[in-house]
Design a binder for these strands. Structure first.
Lengths: 233, 233
DNA sequence: ACATTTGATATGTAGTACATAAGTACTAGT
DNA sequence: ACTAGTACTTATGTACTACATATCAAATGT
């Protein structure tokens, strides 16, 4: 249908509601005043009056900021600014069932890009204990059934992210897991690269960053191969 | 202060408001019914009654979902599900001035990881036109002043993301720009790697993926060097 | 059959009222 | 004078009502 395509190309006139405007105004206000986490905001009634809207509308906007973790409110104590919960916010919208196919594919690729880029951090931060942990995970894999292998796969790659010592990265990965899993289930057959987890650990232990990147590529190669087929252009 | 550390360790008792609960219930409801974008939801009054809350509270919850792009509402037409605006949502909380130092650092590293991992996609998707574009950007750099060089830096790396053909990745990068910029301004001196943009283009043109990864690492080396100093552990 | 008007209806906004939690001030008792 | 306990105050949380506005649907007229 031509109409369908049309409605995708030019997104509809989003009539801004007062809540939208107030949300924006509050953001600006916070920035302009360069408030920092812990600072307290005026009371609802004052804000509402200052903005010329009902307390109702103001509360809708505040409710949004509260959801993002930008403000916290306690009865009688008023409102205070807080640090937004970045990962938590992202989690709210990362539902594989709602995201469109192209974006899912994009995110799948994003994960591959991340794993290929981990090498630097891994080699500069790995410890002997980390290697041992990885070895233990990789070893368990032998002769395990399918469902266990999937769990192990997650554990192994999860551990890699953990080694980077980058907590945001790690949580980001956990967040992407369901999406990754969802895309993988769409594949026809289980994909296994030539390079196994045990190989990767060995490289991490005795090899170089370059070796690891090549190894990781081989490990992920089945996924990369799927990509090169012209997917959804 | 001991008190400060304490309040960081055990996060405060978040007293859930009705809006919080209703937001969650609506999410569950949408999932359970496996609604898809385009499907229409019951009217506010019906939902409010079914949930046993005032229309006010329900609207606060809906306002949140609207912000995330999960639902759209038109007067009289009722509410319809929509695809959440992932990047737009993330943008809302990625304000360098509010994010804490550790997370900023984490995100900075995330960007480095991404750039190191781009090679595969770049080499499988680059076109001759892309190379020409990159060359043009890299060439402009010669003999330019500082502010222009920064803009050019952004343009070059932005173009790299663009070549991947991954729109989500590209927008993600744009989103991270202010953060990257912010962290860089905290550095003492301008950082320049041994490998220039022109070198990178040349590798992309005639070299291999491995060459490119090594080149990119050298290009980003000043940043990586900063990391290896034990930062904020 | 088509254009116009009229009416119905769901969302958007405003305003009032009251419950509840949490400071604050005041009182009483040792 | 100091502590404990009480009463008061106040800002947020929730509910309800009322009305404006946009838009779909039906009725009406040509």
């Amino acid at each position: 249908m031509a109409n369908n395509e049309l409605s995708k190309d030019l997104d509809p006139i989003e009539s801004f509601t007062m809540a939208d405007v107030v949300e924006l105004k509050l953001r600006e206000y916070i920035k302009r005043k360069s408030f920092k986490p812990g600072d307290s905001l005026p009371k609802e009634l004052e804000l509402a009056e200052a903005l010329g809207v009902s307390r109702n509308v103001l509360r809708e906007a505040l409710s949004r900021l509260r959801m993002l973790g930008m403000v916290e409110t306690r009865k009688r104590r008023g409102m205070v600014l807080a640090r937004p919960d970045i990962l938590g916010t992202m989690e709210r919208v990362l539902d594989p069932l709602i995201i469109d196919k192209d974006t899912l594919q994009d995110i799948f690729e994003l994960r591959l890009v991340l794993e290929m880029g981990l090498a630097e951090l891994l080699f500069s931060r790995k410890t002997e204990q980390d290697i041992k942990d990885l070895e233990a995970i990789a070893k368990k894999e032998n002769g395990a059934d399918k469902t266990f292998r999937i769990k192990n796969e997650i554990a192994f790659h999860g551990k890699l992210y953990e080694i980077t010592g980058n907590d945001t990265l790690k949580r980001f990965q956990i967040m992407l897991l369901p999406i990754f899993g969802y895309v993988v289930t769409l594949e026809d057959q289980p994909t296994r690269g030539k390079v196994t987890h045990q190989d990767l650990v060995e490289i991490l232990k005795t090899g170089t960053k370059e070796d690891f990147r090549i190894g990781m590529f081989e490990h992920l190669k089945p996924h990369f191969d799927r990509l090169t087929k012209p997917s959804g252009v």
